[in-house]
Design a binder for these strands. Sequence first.
DNA 1: CTATTTGCAAACGCTTTGCCTGATT
DNA 2: AATCAGGCAAAGCGTTTGCAAATAG
Lengths: 131, 131
Amino acid sequence: MKKKKHRMTKQRKYILEVLRQTTIHPTADWIYEQVRKEIPNISLGTVYRNLKLLAEMGEISILDYGSSYSRFDGNPENHYHFTCTECDSVFDLGIPMDEFIDKEISNKTPFLVESHRIEFYGLCPDCQNKI
Amino acid sequence: MKKKKHRMTKQRKYILEVLRQTTIHPTADWIYEQVRKEIPNISLGTVYRNLKLLAEMGEISILDYGSSYSRFDGNPENHYHFTCTECDSVFDLGIPMDEFIDKEISNKTPFLVESHRIEFYGLCPDCQNKI
DNA sequence: CTATTTGCAAACGCTTTGCCTGATT
DNA sequence: AATCAGGCAAAGCGTTTGCAAATAG
């Protein structure tokens, strides 16, 4: 594992700056539009490459959920899931939904919370043994 | 709003059956492969159309995470989010992470939990006023 | 210098859609 | 007959990648 050197190009620097100065959790395209005001000929590919790199560097975070494709669940009831970070399997958790947390957050914040989902991450039994 | 009638075709029926008999939270493609064993000339498009319809009917649930594109966050620290179901805005919640929940789930289940994320859904202040 | 990064455009991969034929009521 | 669903293939769309030229250190 060789450590790579990262240059702080003006593109990278400005992308990070734009992201640090907003709280709207923008899409790549929105960021692209903002950066274009300063660096008109930047390409979308560069934006994507830098967002990915900045996330790897721990400077920002990405709010997708890992895989690119959807998963389907024969159980239509809301319930919690556990995703193994090693093998990507998704399991149902047999623990009950927290009934009160929505109300609690509604009281503590200006948001009216109607539902929530919790995703746990870690190692499934099989992968705990493999490592 | 007119209510549509849904016929229970053999394709739809078998897709639902496959999904009900597994707990692996499969992808559309995996479902397609399973159904093909029974209905060899079914098309992927039909699988997608039915999965979407079954979800609308409340028979199954889809584990994608809403929008098709990623959102980026200038804050690399893990924290909770609130998504407005009306305007799709994403907000940071100023509440602290629950430090103990990972251990609690690790104790109660066979999974080794290393982290979790919680997404709350409901109405943001602006949209509460609009409705 | 030279390894990294960029712009451009083409490719990717999952999902959706249009169109027409076939099935159901 | 009228409506709903399916098969097929093309289109869609956000994202990734290959490549030659540019550039940071």
